[in-house]
């Protein structure tokens, strides 16, 4: 906003900027803390006062991906010298890498699989929720639906109770139909959970798209389906991107259902990471490393869609 600024306005601006900085510091400190801890040697992770300057190490990440056990006896000098660099890191931490007895292959921890499960479940459930949500929202926005308001309220009401409330009945039902500890089970749950949100948000976006766009396409010789895909969908992309980011974050971070409904095959990263606290003394550096990696996909996804998030809807060539 250009123009004349009074002194008072200048100070208002400066105060606002200062407030933003404070908010940023408050919000970014935990992320810094996780990132810093993920690269710390174990003995520096819990010092008081916190260690700020240290030599970064990737040992937490090595430990994160390998299966380890407590060292009963020190390795021989020869064992230590012939070990690769990452195995030395584990020895230095007072542990040893677990190997397959026959083949001698290093056994990996469950983190990689859990991470993959998280990706599968989150991506598929996000696509389903946004896709179905957009179609439903289009229907509500463009057609006369008997009892439209009631339906929309009903859809929203599924969000009104905390999901954990239904966790036990869901678990029992899932066990009967064989959906517990499956990807499909979690995908259905997360899709259902995000769908109401997607319908509401997308209805707002689609209501903003003038009907004339479709009507123009209809008289120009297109069917309604074609008009939807060629005209409405490109206009709704911004909204779909925003909805997708929120759905993805919700599914990615979901903890309670993942903890209850899965244990091995389909377990996602959120319940896995804290489970590492339980074995022996908690190794906070490993937990921080797991959390740090876990942050990256969401950050990338949000970063890729940032233009859509910021662009807004007032881009059209329609005059009102």
């Amino acid at each position: 906003m250009a123009g004349v600024q009074t002194t008072a306005e200048k100070w208002t601006n400066r105060t606002a900027i200062a407030a933003v900085f404070v908010a940023l510091i408050i919000m970014l400190t935990p992320i810094y803390w996780i990132a810093a801890t993920a690269f710390k040697p174990r003995n520096l992770a819990t010092t008081i006062p916190p260690t700020v300057v240290y030599e970064p190490t990737v040992a937490p990440f090595v430990k994160l991906f390998t299966k380890r056990s407590q060292l009963r006896e020190q390795p021989t000098q020869e064992e230590y010298d012939t070990a690769p660099w990452w195995e030395k890191m584990v020895y230095d931490g007072g542990e040893k890498v677990v190997r397959n007895r026959k083949s001698g292959e290093v056994r990996s921890s469950g983190y990689g699989d859990r991470f993959k499960n998280s990706l599968i479940v989150s991506v598929i459930s996000t696509i389903l929720a946004v896709g179905m949500g957009t179609l439903t929202a289009y229907g509500f926005s463009r057609f006369k639906v008997a009892g439209e308001d009631d339906w929309l309220f009903f859809i929203l009401s599924t969000r009104m109770l905390p999901p954990v409330v239904v966790a036990i009945p869901m678990f029992l039902m899932y066990r009967v139909v064989g959906l517990n500890d499956t990807h499909m089970g979690l995908i259905i749950l997360y899709t259902a959970f995000n769908l109401s949100f997607a319908v509401w948000i997308m209805k707002g976006f689609i209501d903003e798209i003038p009907r004339e766009y479709e009507e123009a396409a209809l008289v120009d010789g297109y069917t309604r389906i074609q008009a939807f895909f060629k005209v409405v969908l490109p206009e709704a992309l911004t909204g779909m991107a925003a909805t997708a980011v929120f759905c993805f974050i919700t599914a990615w971070n979901e903890y309670a259902f993942a903890l209850i409904m899965t244990n091995r095959n389909a377990q996602t990263a959120p319940p896995y990471i804290p489970s590492q606290v339980g074995s022996g003394l908690p190794d906070w550096t490993v937990i921080a490393a797991g959390t740090f990696l876990f942050l990256i996909p969401v950050a990338i996804f949000t970063f890729l869609l940032r233009n859509h998030l910021l662009r807004g809807m007032s881009f059209g060539a329609i005059r009102k």
């Binding site: 209809l218 008289v219 069917t223 329609i318 005059r319």
Partner: peptide, 20 residues
């Protein structure tokens, strides 16, 4: 008949040009 089958063109007050 559907609008698409009538072979008629329509100009809207809002112009209704596709922005994308």
């Amino acid at each position: 008949k559907k609008a698409a089958d009538r072979d008629i063109a329509f100009v809207f007050q809002s112009f209704s040009l596709y922005p994308h």
